[in-house]
Design a protein around this nucleic acid. Structure first.
Length: 590
RNA sequence: GCACCUGUAGCUCAACUGGAUAGAGCGCCAGACUACGAAUCUGGAGGUUCGGGGUUCGACUCCCUGCAGGUGCACCA
């Protein structure tokens, strides 16, 4: 017996075939197969209900007809029952569970099963995107963490994924910064050189603040700063050098954070990259009648829209300068033409929803009028990270919390816990474990929640080992690995020959959870919501812990031992695969 | 003022986009280690899903309306 990776879509297909024989497909019948409450079965099909409603017929009778036409192979793997007003329930037989588990025996095979969903597609993911000359702070966390998980989910589903860090490297902050830099160079060059050698990004940040304050106090400074900006934008060699220096330093500092989070971009095409591409945007949008002059600026209105009929999409400022609307439009075009993308996911704060809506609407009309094919554009929005006072998370003094400090504190808290719980490990081992647990906890706390809402950042809840946390999942992984280690077995080659089908309630519950991996992947990927995968992994780990508590693995009966080792091993690879998809690192022991 | 998001157990969150008896964790109560890691597991109590209407076999989910909080709305991204 061999079973497909995605059992739900397999059942879906079988039902569609049966429906076609009944002539229902033309009338719009959809099976609607989904994971069921375990009390009812493994999967359920609800389609007969909606169809019966439209056809004004008895849903239960229609469901019965469907079941009668079902291919016999379905009945050989599932118990099929009718329930309630017309639900069709499917419960996999133990032998079928075993067959699936035997087939999907490695991360590579799981991926092979999942890879058909987005095969042949190219997606670009636009995430993280901090501004240069500033340190990354807690406000940059979600885009980076969620964006990385989405990249991995898309790639796992078979897409070619391009990771683009759309950094803010062309903002107005550079005028003040360059002015202050030149000031410092003129008055205290040695101190400047030392500071830049030791903590370059901190120094640039300090310079920016100095420039900002000076400009506020003295209009002459403000003018000077503006003229530095104009010189930069006109290509002044000295200012360009300073600007490059700032960006280089910034990217290096960002990369330290990205290394901790396991992120590596394909490129970082910031706003400056699109400098020479915005003129074409102005020209085309005017030519196709989308853009118009208003109050000296170039804007796009959308007359059919309740808000954007009045609220302009401002693509060129009255002083002629570009802004992020212009560069974002240029970016859409560049990505579409250069990479032939099928879709682009913008992992950006919900506060920019208006901007994204206007961008997408404008791009859609622009592409339509110029005969281009528009890729799917998705705003993957997310809420704010709040402190326990339900206000945006800040330090006690009201500053943004630097991401560097946040991750360091997570590691420190994890270390305190590891040192307490795992006294038998060496200090080096404890530190290594804390590094992974700390960062994973931060990542998981963010990912496990529906990204649409704000979330409250609580140290205790995050690092704690109870509930839906990274540590709970990592602990489950460590316990499985521990069994193999103690038994002297290689988890890469588990001795599972002769395994019998799952039998005890806990074995069955665990096996059922395992075969639903594909559903979790599909759900998380199709909606670009990693929390669905988190929820699944948490439930899987829970099913494993329940199994572990009741069914001893290393028993004498060979067949029982083999099937329990099989369950352990498959749980291990699914947990690890899932955690890696979320961007987390996993552990041997903790 | 207009628009968008959010409102679910004391707290933090789920509920697969209209499906079956709204589920978890924390906290609280009661249990389980001389066998593979108790950082665990098993039970229990806890709900007018913000209020009020409506749509239908069926609503946390869709529509209308009110309330509360957050966010955005012409040159910063």
């Amino acid at each position: 017996m061999s079973l497909p990776f995605a059992l739900a879509s397999h059942l879906d297909l079988a039902l569609q075939t049966a429906a076609a024989a009944l002539g229902w497909v033309e009338r719009g019948f959809l099976p609607e197969v989904r994971v069921a409450d375990p009390a009812h079965g493994d999967f359920q099909a609800n389609g007969a209900l909606a169809f019966a409603k439209r056809e004004k017929q008895n849903p239960r009778a229609l469901a019965q007809q469907l079941v009668d036409r079902l291919d016999p192979s379905v009945r050989s793997t599932c118990e099929v029952t009718l329930a309630g007003p017309g639900f069709i329930n499917f419960r996999l037989k133990p032998a079928a569970l075993l067959a699936w588990l035997q087939d999907y025996d490695s991360e590579a095979h799981l991926q092979g099963g999942a890879a058909s969903a987005k095969a042949g597609q190219t997606w670009i993911v636009d995430y993280s995107s901090p501004n240069t000359a500033k340190q990354m702070h807690v406000g940059h966390l979600r885009s980076a963490v969620i964006g990385e998980a989405i990249c991995r989910l898309l790639a796992f589903s078979g897409a070619r994924v391009i990771r683009d860090n759309h950094i803010g490297d062309w903002g107005t902050q550079f005028g003040k910064l360059i002015w202050a830099y030149k000031q410092a160079q003129a008055t205290a060059p040695a101190a400047l050189a030392t500071a830049l050698a030791n903590e370059p990004l901190e120094e640039f940040e300090r310079l920016y603040k100095a420039g900002h304050h000076a400009a506020e106090a003295d209009p002459a400074v403000l003018d000077a700063a503006r003229s530095e900006l104009v010189k930069l934008q006109d290509g002044d060699a000295v200012n360009l050098d300073i600007w490059r220096h700032i960006n280089g330093v910034s990217l290096a500092a960002f990369q330290q954070i990205y290394d901790q989070l396991g992120i590596r971009f394909d490129f970082a095409h910031g706003e400056s990259f699109y400098n020479d591409k915005v003129a074409a945007v102005y020209r085309e949008l005017q030519q196709c009648g989308l853009a118009q002059e208003s109050e000296g600026a170039l804007v796009v209105f959308h007359p059919e829209h309740p808000r954007f009929a009045q609220q302009p999409f401002l693509i060129r400022k009255k002083d002629g300068a570009s802004n992020y609307a212009s560069t974002d439009l240029a970016t859409v075009l560049h990505r579409a033409e250069t990479y032939h993308i099928d879709g682009a996911a913008y992992v950006i704060d919900f506060r920019q929803s208006d901007h994204m809506d206007q961008l997408f609407l404008t791009a859609q009309k622009w592409f339509e009028r110029t005969g281009r094919k528009l890729p799917r554009l998705e705003h993957v929005d997310f809420g704010t990270v709040l402190g326990e006072d339900n206000k945006p998370l800040k330090t006690r003094s009201g500053e943004n919390i630097r991401l560097k400090d946040l991750l360091a504190e997570a590691e420190a808290r994890a270390l305190a816990l590891v040192a307490e719980k795992s006294r038998d490990l060496t200090p080096e081992e404890q530190t290594g474990i804390a590094r992974i647990v700390g960062v994973a906890s931060v990542q998981y706390a963010d990912l496990s929640q529906n990204r649409s809402s704000d979330y409250v950042f609580t140290w205790d809840k995050m690092i704690s080992l109870d509930g839906n946390t990274a540590a709970y999942l990592l602990y489950a992984v460590a316990r499985i690995r521990s069994i193999f280690r103690k038994a002297g077995l290689d988890p890469a080659r588990p001795p599972v020959a002769g395994a019998s089908a799952p039998e005890t309630p806990q074995e069955l519950a665990l096996a059922r959870r395992l075969v639903q991996f594909s559903d979790a992947i599909l759900l998380a990927t199709s909606q670009l919501r990693p929390h669905f995968l988190c929820l699944y992994l948490y439930e899987l780990a829970g099913a494993y812990s329940a199994f572990y508590a009741v069914d001893r693995v290393m028993v004498d009966a060979a067949e029982v031992r083999a099937r329990r080792l099989l369950l352990c091993h498959r749980t291990l690879i699914v947990l690890e695969t899932g955690l890696h998809l979320l961007g987390l690192r996993t552990l041997e022991r903790m």
